[in-house]
Amino acid sequence: MGALVLAEGATFEPPGAGSFILPPIFGSVTKPMVLVVLSVVIIATYFLLATRKLKVVPGKGQFVAESIYNFSRNNIAREQIGSHDFKRFIPLVFSLFTFILVNNLYGIIPFLQFPTMARFGFPVALSVLVVYPVYHYAGIKKHGLGRYFKKELAPPGVPPLVLPLFALIEFAEKFFLNPLTLAIRVFAAMFAGHLILAVFTLGGTFLLTETSGWALKPVSLVAWIFAIGMTFLEAFIQVLQAYIFALLSAGYIGAALASEH
């Protein structure tokens, strides 16, 4: 994006992809790295404290912790994987949901204000190094290597003439596209949302402080109102994207475990 030059001579450099490249804090450690580690500490500390003294009538902290766990267990894992196999995957689904949720919400927390999932390497690592091996391993363990590949690439009912093309498409989807698109969804949403918030916030500040005339200064208020509105929308999207990532991950596991039809 090019620079916007106003009549007064002030120049506004709109935020772009370069805004997501942060200098190291110390050594080779960057802010996103610190935030990722901090998210693990936050999640572990909260759930340990909230469940330290369980009560029949839960307090607010225990109620929130139980609600998040029950949502991950029943609304994601059980529904997507099935009541027979879901229990052993609850820790994974619960961890994915809470980890991505906290790292997404960083984007609207003052002073932090950076969703770590907007750095492509983090969602790719979760997808390729965690989800991808788990659901293929689960399928191979249940069906055996040969039956699993047959179930995924050559299910019954596919005409022999189109089977080679069908198998090639399914192979590309199951082994390459699924893990990639899983990561791209959350990355793109966090990247775009953070960029939009930065444009409205910095743009409003620029119009208020860097323009000499009064004609454009009231527009800064409009920009900030949009920024506030977008913050609430972004919060909703941040929660939604954490849910979608966990939901699709559980869905892939459920599909890998499903019997042939």
Rank of each mutant, 00 (worst) to 15 (best):
Y46D: 09
E152L: 11
L233Q: 14
L216E: 13
S212R: 15
F86D: 00
Q241L: 06
L195K: 04
G204F: 14
A17S: 09
A255F: 08
K31E: 15
K217W: 06
F236C: 14
H84L: 12
L248G: 02
I196Q: 15
K60H: 11
G204K: 12
G251C: 02
Y46Q: 14
W224D: 01
Y148E: 04
L4P: 04
G18A: 10
A65H: 10
L182D: 01
L163F: 12
N178M: 09
L208A: 15
L207G: 02
V37S: 06
V64S: 04
A138G: 07
F232R: 08
H143E: 12
V128K: 08
T231Y: 11
A246M: 00
V93R: 00
V128P: 00
G203T: 07
A198H: 15
L208E: 09
S249G: 04
G193L: 15
A44L: 15
G193K: 11
F86G: 00
I225A: 13
A256I: 02
I225N: 05
A118I: 03
A256P: 01
A7N: 15
A7D: 14
V134F: 00
I108R: 13
P123R: 11
L112N: 03
L101P: 01
T45D: 15
A188M: 07
G213S: 11
P123K: 10
Y135W: 12
Y69E: 11
V34K: 04
W224F: 09
Q241G: 00
K151Y: 11
G254T: 03
F200P: 05
M117Y: 12
Q62H: 07
P15M: 13
V222P: 05
T51C: 05
I169M: 10
P115M: 08
A192V: 09
K53L: 03
V102C: 02
G157T: 10
Y132S: 03
D85Y: 12
M190P: 04
H84G: 07
A223Q: 12
K87W: 08
Y252M: 00
L92G: 02
F120Q: 09
Y243R: 03
Y69A: 01
S39L: 04
T181N: 14
L54W: 09
P164V: 06
F63I: 09
F245K: 01
L177K: 04
V158M: 14
A192R: 06
G251T: 03
L257P: 01
G254K: 01
G204Q: 12
Y243N: 01
K150R: 08
F111C: 04
T11S: 08
G193I: 09
A17T: 14
F187D: 01
N74E: 09
V29I: 05
V40Q: 14
L165P: 04
F114A: 02
T205P: 04
L180T: 10
A50N: 08
L129C: 12
L233S: 09
P160S: 10
G157F: 05
W214H: 12
T231R: 11
A7W: 11
I169F: 06
Y135K: 00
R78F: 05
I109D: 03
A118E: 02
S28C: 05
S259D: 13
I21P: 01
V102L: 05
V37T: 14
V37C: 03
R147Q: 15
G27Y: 00
L92R: 01
N178A: 07
F245N: 01
L126N: 03
K150T: 07
M230P: 07
G16Y: 06
T201H: 12
A246I: 00
V93E: 01
K87G: 01
